[in-house]
């Protein structure tokens, strides 16, 4: 069903949207179901034709595909290609889809067979190196976060439906953290990736006294060399810093660079 809405005289269609999950916890989709107060408005904006977390029916007639999760198996690549064929717009939903997310932590081990054995024992399972969606298909839009922030998704989807350009903040989390008048985590002796991580989460973690783990990936022009100095000055080891930077995969290129300098395998 498509109603004929207009905004400033411009016809606005109610697009059919579908939600898909690859390797993930489906927590990002659950985020969308949180806060029932705005759920009806969200549903008036788009027509959801597939959403495993919230409905039984599943249609393959959709225009916008929200794909959560990263790719860890060959069949997921195939599934994703089919989605790309069908959808006009493919949205990578959450850090797993954008960067590989927590799943890609296993990529840091050279021997993936050993990883498989440690985790699954003798259980037969296919698992490969973790990839973000963009490694397999063209992604039109990325929505960052682990999990995503519902308010941000609502803003982005409204803009998408209106046919507006989508802009992500160009500044790091510190900007939003200061606006919430938090105590700087570094003053408490905690490491924090706020100075280099793309904002948009409204400093969710630092506002709860948890240092940023960089789930939204690097801000454009993130000053990572200065971050290393900041960490070192405060006696935070490079291992600890790398642990954080590696957690969601957004800083993969920089981590590889640091490891190479240290002479470690990537």
């Amino acid at each position: 069903m498509t109603t004929n809405k207009t905004f400033l005289g411009v016809p606005v269609a109610r697009p059919k949207v579908a939600f898909f999950e690859l390797s993930s916890c489906e927590g990002c989709q659950l985020q969308l179901l949180n806060n029932e107060a705005t759920l009806l408005d969200f549903l008036s904006l788009v027509e959801v034709v597939r959403f495993r977390e919230g409905m039984k029916e599943a249609s393959d007639d959709y225009e916008i595909a929200f794909v959560e999760g990263s790719i860890t198996r060959r069949d997921e690549e195939e599934r994703l290609r089919v989605i790309r064929e069908q959808a006009k717009v493919v949205v990578a939903l959450g850090s797993c889809a954008c960067f590989g997310g927590v799943n890609q932590l296993k990529n840091r081990f050279n021997d993936l067979e050993w990883v498989k054995k440690e985790v699954y024992g003798s259980f037969p399972i296919e698992t490969q190196k973790v990839k973000p969606l963009s490694a397999v298909i063209k992604v039109d839009l990325e929505i960052y976060g682990c999990p995503i922030k519902k308010e941000e998704v609502e803003r982005i989807v409204t803009a998408l439906v209106l046919g507006e350009q989508i802009h992500h903040p160009q500044y790091p989390v510190c900007m939003e953290c200061k606006a919430r008048e938090n105590i700087c985590l570094f003053d408490l002796g905690e490491p924090c990736l706020g100075p280099v991580t793309r904002a948009g989460c409204d400093a969710w973690c630092p506002s709860n006294r948890l240092g940023c783990w960089g789930c939204r990936g690097p801000a454009p022009e993130a000053n990572l060399s200065q971050l290393q100095i900041i960490m070192a000055e405060r006696g935070i080891s490079q291992e600890r810093m790398i642990d954080r930077l590696e957690c969601f995969g957004g800083f993969a290129a920089f981590v590889a660079e640091v490891k190479e300098k240290k002479g470690e395998p990537k």
Binding site: Y171, P172, C174, M175, K178, A179, G194, P195, V196, A219, E221, N223, S225, Q226, L227
Partner: peptide
């Protein structure tokens, strides 16, 4: 400029 994090902290405080 090499040190600056372009984070806006200075302006916010």
């Amino acid at each position: 400029g090499q040190k600056c994090l372009s984070c806006g902290t200075c302006a916010q405080v």
